[in-house]
Design a protein around this nucleic acid. Structure first.
Lengths: 254, 254
DNA sequence: CGGCGCGTTGAACACCCTCAAACTAGGTGG
DNA sequence: CCACCTAGTTTGAGGGTGTTCAACGCGCCG
């Protein structure tokens, strides 16, 4: 099905049936996880890192590779460590939706379905931490703080998704783009990165399918925001936020 | 703030500070709850109904009354017992979104925010079961099955909200309406009601703001579906599904 | 060089929105 | 009983906005 590749550092129970298991990755471990402060694992006591490590495996994807295909059986949940992925769905006639972009610290696994409802593919080379559903159940049963943390995050994601409804239903194209850029910069800040410049790893097509527009309209909106001095685009995948106040006004439709 | 009115059957701890508490309602209790099989409370053991009753209070709203206003402090979670409500957000310039309709069995409380992000108002006379956040924490700490059930429902709602993204971003007006009607009939089935006729308690304006359209476009879509023999509308608030297969094809864009 | 993927820009069109009016149903009061 | 009002829905006509179609520019790579 998917081109899933797993690097494991220690062969733990519950994930032994994984296909394509490769040699362990030197230097890997939850104790040195770069996104631990962002990930759901923060809910676990620090001295339980080794318990966690026994259940986790790394997944590495190159740009363009699939983590999952719509309809695949869901067997693992993931935390994005590095890179960027997109969650997409495509209709029979080709209409496509990008339901979201997945960045370091994001959790992939909030769904009630047994099978994937979206295709998830790497935009850039990415690494993820994988835990089987059984492993997750075990962890939740042992550490109730984890289930609570998951609940908290599911609510955050629900709030964010409801915000997107407003954008798609009632916001104009420039307003949607402004909101998108501010979202992206906020995620950078979460990672402790510079907040004046945004790197957009995705293509204009991805942005269009995310904002419910066409690539032409997205391109024209970039041009418009640039013309108004709100942003600068040294290259198509780099955006500088020149006037954040106005962008926020635009995005909030105040 | 809101015109919240609480009927209590037994003065339990944790909700005593409620304003506008009225006389207890005869015959009320979790044991006779009409939506218990639909509600999150299914996760609690049946013999614990009395423990639950001590924490719950009834809220009754007349059509048009508010359960909460955007920005209000969130102090309770609710389960809809009867009636119908809408969850809305309005921009400064009047653009409105109906983020969802709340029907019997629905849980109101999946949010990470301390304050309401939407206004919630009764479309028809409605009754809800209210539990304070503290009460909910107590219950979750005692019955882990409840937290798990909540998690499950949060995931279901997340899946449904993501589906709505696709509708708003890429579906045509008739497709959105077909999907909406099928959603509504599915909720009726959940309550064990007739599945050939749908009652639409909300106005065309509500539907329009839910589907990201104007009332005129919604009205024209009704006319179109009627003209194609897919539905009949004896009156504006009653819809018969004449050709469910075609409606499903339309809604799925197959 | 030539091909390709991606982004931008221009022109014409189509669709939904805006504006306007008619119609219905329900409620009030003369 | 009818006039009158209001709220909600439907239908029509015209205009605006995003889409569609097309062309061009750019960087990359064989």
């Amino acid at each position: 099905m998917s081109s899933l590749r797993i690097h494991r550092n220690s062969p733990g129970p519950g994930v032994a049936e994984l296909g394509m298991v490769e040699a362990p990755e030197a230097g890997h471990g939850c104790r040195v996880c770069l996104v631990r402060h962002l990930a759901v694992c923060t809910a676990l006591p620090a001295d339980q890192a080794s318990a966690l490590e026994q259940l986790t495996g790394d997944t590495r994807l190159h740009a363009g590779e699939l983590l999952a295909r719509e309809g695949d059986l869901r067997r693992y949940v993931f935390t994005v460590q590095t890179g960027a992925l997109r969650r997409t769905r495509t209709l029979a006639d080709g209409r496509r939706l990008v339901a979201g972009f997945l960045m370091p610290g994001d959790y992939i696994g909030f769904s009630s379905a047994t099978h994937y409802r979206h295709t998830i593919e790497a935009i850039t080379d990415s690494t993820l931490c994988a835990v089987s559903h059984e492993g997750m159940r075990t962890l939740c049963a042992t550490y109730h703080g984890l289930e609570h943390e998951l609940m908290q995050r599911a609510c955050i994601e629900l709030d964010a998704t409801r915000d997107k409804l407003m954008a798609l239903a009632r916001m104009t194209p420039p307003e949607r783009l402004a909101g998108f850029l501010l979202d992206m910069v906020q995620r950078r800040q979460r990672q402790g990165l510079d907040d004046a410049v945004v790197a957009l790893p995705m293509t204009r097509t991805d942005i269009a399918d995310y904002l419910g527009l066409t690539i032409e309209t997205v391109s024209r909106c970039f041009t418009k925001l640039r013309g108004e001095g709100l942003i600068a685009t040294p290259d198509p995948h780099t955006v500088q936020l020149l006037d954040r106040k106005k962008l926020e006004l635009l995005a909030a439709a105040a």
